[in-house]
Amino acid sequence: MTIDQPMSGGCQCGAVRFTAGKLGRPSICHCRMCQKAFGGFFGPLVTADPAHLEWTRGAPTLFRSSAKIWRGFCAKCGTPLTYQMREGVELAIGAFDHPERLEPQIQVNHKKRLPWIDHLFDQPVLDNPEVEAAHAAIESWQHPDHNTDKWPEDAT
């Protein structure tokens, strides 16, 4: 799978934004380092061609998580952005403006997955209109899922 059309994305606060073209294989990684880096059950990543990756606002801060890996994140809000190695770069799928276009095609480090992950979506769904209304009423200060000339929008 290769996605040739450029896709944009960035961190939660908007301090770091990117445009990436020539995206490769979307995946999820179950290794413990990805779990910790994303603060989640796995790390959702997509390979990117560094020649077609442009940081359009700011740039990620790098943390060396192992002898071979650097992880990029926003220094202001902490959003995970990259998994970098000598061989290339992968971008966090959730950081894209349209993550729904990057359905994972493979699982990496499957033997390291959390023991209950295969049954995660068997759990009951909370369908509570009061909870949904409370969430809908929250005013988000998160950067919108599209490029902006400046952010926050009231900045001069």
Rank of each mutant, 00 (worst) to 15 (best):
M1E: 12
Q5E: 15
Q5S: 14
G9K: 00
G10E: 02
C11I: 03
G14Q: 06
A15R: 00
V16R: 10
V16P: 06
R17S: 09
R17D: 12
T19Y: 06
T19I: 15
A20K: 01
A20F: 00
A20C: 04
G21K: 08
R25I: 09
R25C: 10
R25H: 15
R25Q: 15
S27T: 08
I28K: 11
C29Y: 04
H30F: 15
H30M: 13
C31D: 07
R32T: 12
M33I: 14
Q35S: 09
Q35N: 07
K36T: 06
K36M: 11
A37W: 13
F38A: 10
F38R: 08
G39W: 03
G39R: 01
G39K: 08
G40H: 13
G40K: 10
F42Y: 15
F42K: 02
P44F: 06
P44I: 06
L45S: 03
V46W: 06
T47D: 15
T47R: 13
A48R: 00
D49L: 04
P50E: 12
A51F: 02
H52G: 08
H52Y: 08
H52M: 10
L53R: 04
E54C: 10
W55R: 09
T56L: 11
T56N: 10
G58M: 05
A59I: 03
P60R: 02
T61C: 07
T61W: 04
F63L: 00
R64W: 09
S66H: 08
S66P: 05
A67R: 09
R71T: 05
R71F: 08
G72A: 07
G78M: 07
P80H: 05
L81F: 09
L81V: 04
L81H: 01
T82E: 07
M85K: 14
E87P: 02
E90T: 03
E90A: 14
G94C: 09
G94K: 01
G94F: 10
A95P: 06
A95I: 07
F96E: 06
F96S: 02
D97L: 08
H98L: 00
E103A: 14
P104D: 03
Q105F: 06
Q105H: 09
Q107M: 05
V108D: 07
H110S: 10
K111Y: 03
K112R: 11
R113F: 09
L114W: 03
P115F: 14
W116R: 02
I117M: 13
I117S: 13
H119N: 14
L120D: 07
D122I: 04
D122Q: 14
P124L: 03
P124E: 04
V125K: 05
E130R: 12
E130H: 06
V131F: 09
E132R: 15
A133V: 00
A134Y: 11
S140K: 14
W141C: 00
Q142W: 05
H143R: 11
P144I: 12
D145A: 15
N147Q: 14
N147V: 15
N147F: 00
D149Y: 02
D149R: 08
K150E: 13
P152G: 03
D154F: 12
A155W: 07
A155E: 13
T156G: 11
